[in-house]
Amino acid sequence: MTKPTVIVHDPTLRDGQHAVRHQLDVKQIRSYAAAADTAGVPVVEIGHGNGLGASSHQVGHSRLSDDEMLATARQALPHSKMATLMLPGWATSKDLRNAVRHGVDVVRVAAHCTEATVTERHLDVIRELGAEAQGVLLMSHMATPEELAEQCALMVGYGAQAVCIFDSAGHYLPQDVTVRVAAITAAVDVPVAFHGHNNLGLAVANSIAAIEAGARVIDACARGFGAGAGNTQLEVLVAVLERLGHHTGIDLRLLADAAELAERTLMPAPPTIDSISLVSGLAGVFSGFKKPVLAAAEQTGVHAWDLFVELGRLRVTAGQEDMIPDAARELAAHGGLR
């Protein structure tokens, strides 16, 4: 029996930004994009870690503007599709028009897992602009399989040509992914995508579980370059897919070279599952909170582990970085000192 083809979607140059405070420069973007293109990676995602228009004090100012990032990457991607991400309330339709003018082929519109209704307008704008529109549900472990299926169906109704669930906190076990992806594939007739994080060391296993449950697009980053413990490791994923017999169209040997280049040029060190990343996965908190949590813990004298557990209890979602110092002060006031 032939195994289904898997489209590998590579957000190294977007999600990886979280690990370097959104400081990737022109040379870094150009060289990695060219290497990924040469290896045959079908889709390469570009942008600030939080997407279009997100450069801010709240989540960090990026070194390059959206214009500079997209123009640089487009030149280096003669074959691969170029993708980007946006969050309604952070970026606007103006940013979408600008991105499409720069040659973006795929735009992902992302919302917290229960808030798909905010994607209605922007999915429609992307379709009108003629780009491929995909809907993303962030922090998807915070919703039940039924809720996710419902939210994905809404996005398809708004025009999404693929729907994607992000394991933003790296909280899933393979069986969690299986039930969610199965529920979504049963509810929609567009490709389903899965975006894993490696906080519990399960990103590749979770991605395989997603494919077995019907997902056809998998996100993965070179060396796992991404927020916190990092993402699903791209070259490992593709090797595993080869062993399982899934076609990806990627030349693994060239991809391994691209990953070497990524390690050498993009990151101070490849992501690792340190104790902070472990607790953020366990507590179900957005991996991108690592740096601000460490800063707040340092400032207030509370233990970063306890702060992550507290943020998980508060169900704080991505983008609410302003909650971190407050939660740390509260914890310090209530004797949560190390």
Partner: peptide, 21 residues
């Protein structure tokens, strides 16, 4: 200037919050 709106699904529902810089 930069303005951002987040929608929180936290439970219990948190009060309206504005972080200014």
């Amino acid at each position: 200037t930069k303005a951002i709106l987040n929608i929180s699904a936290a439970r219990p529902a948190p009060p309206f919050r504005i972080a200014m810089t």
